[in-house]
């Protein structure tokens, strides 16, 4: 996902020996055919199953429609108005934003400190890295089921808390309306923290050791070196991580769907669970499409602004460059 931000498209034209005289036209035709053959299947697949459905969603969103029969009940922007005037959907947007904010406030410092620690010459470093990354490889479904079982009332988590004398901390982790979102956030952190750590470790390895040594020679303490040399140099990696993390938080679905279905009483509904709930459970295809378009616009706006203002100084991104 992130690659779009940093990959520079090749600019140097590929030299191609021009064919002589009469064969030139034939060779040009041949090149066209080759291009059609090479690009055609990918474009068809991409357009047919990604681009067109997204555009069609915009069209559906203007109708009141249950997914069957012709679209006749044109309602204009009513679906959008309805979505925003509903408390549940506004709540869902809020939940997505809370998760995104918590990710930056909690996961980022945690990932950075873990990456800094794991970057030291510890024994078994390779093994450590694999362990940290392992939850990221598990499917969301497996993660959700594992934590669902661990968090059962009177289950593993409760017993461990009681065992270490923190019995008063035992809660209805997934049934308490005020708590469920934060419980989910902890599960999300468990699953995705490894990704951040691995990214940041890769970033740390790109920092030449000479820089740290030079700072140390100049009398900088280890904290000063980290704060004024290492962190600024990690900037590009951190900014990419924030981007991925926010987009991921906005699209949160699988974990929530399996663990709580957005409940109890919509306390953990996200935009995506709201969309699937209305689209597929209640057959409100027009309304569901409007929600999908809103979700898309939020992600897209964030992506554009973030590219412009945060990522731009790191690299000239493929996206912004092509758009401008």
């Amino acid at each position: 996902m992130s690659a779009a931000i940093t990959t520079r498209p090749p600019t140097a034209p590929v030299p191609h020996a021009p064919a002589a005289g009469g064969t030139r036209r034939r060779s040009r035709l041949r090149t066209r055919l080759e291009l059609a053959l090479l690009l055609g299947p990918g474009l068809l697949l991409f357009a047919g199953f990604v681009l067109v459905p997204i555009c069609v969603a915009v069209y559906y969103s203007l109708y009141s429609w249950n997914g069957f029969g012709p679209l006749t009940d044109f309602v204009g922007l009513d679906n959008y108005v309805d979505a925003f005037s509903g408390e549940v959907f506004r709540g869902a947007i809020g939940h997505n934003l809370i998760i995104a904010a918590l990710s930056i406030i909690v996961q980022l410092p945690l990932s950075i400190s873990l990456a800094l620690l794991l970057n030291r010459k510890l024994r078994g470093r390779t093994f450590l890295r694999m362990v940290v990354f392992a939850p990221y490889v598990l499917s969301e479904a497996v993660t959700a089921v594992i934590w669902l079982l661990m968090l059962q009332p009177g289950g593993f988590v409760d017993e461990v808390l009681r065992g270490v004398g923190l019995g008063s901390f035992v809660h209805q982790w997934l049934a308490d309306q005020g708590l469920v979102l934060y419980t989910l956030f902890i599960v999300i952190t468990w699953k995705y923290i490894g990704f951040g750590v691995i990214l940041l470790l890769a970033g740390l390895q790109g920092i030449p050791a000479e820089l740290r040594e030079a700072a140390a020679l100049d009398g900088a303490s280890s904290w000063q070196t980290t704060r004024h040399v290492v962190l600024p140099l990690l900037g590009p990696t951190i900014r990419v991580w924030i981007f991925l993390s926010v987009i991921g938080s906005l699209q949160l679905f699988d974990l929530v769907w399996i663990m709580t279905l957005g409940g109890p009483a919509n306390a953990s509904t996200t935009m995506a669970t709201y969309l699937i709930d209305h689209g597929f459970k209640r057959y409100e295809f027009g309304f569901g499409s409007a929600v999908a378009v809103i979700l898309f616009i939020i992600c897209f706006t964030f992506a554009l602004f973030y590219q412009r203002f945060a990522l731009r100084r790191d690299t000239d991104g493929a996206l912004t460059r092509a758009v401008s």
Binding site: F49, A292, L295
Partner: peptide, 21 residues
């Protein structure tokens, strides 16, 4: 650019039409 734009599309946005399709 068209292909890179695909990186930004959450699957959720396309699901309803994709399902009907």
């Amino acid at each position: 650019t068209l292909f890179t734009l695909g990186l930004l599309f959450p699957l959720g946005v396309a699901t309803l039409p994709l399902y009907l399709w």
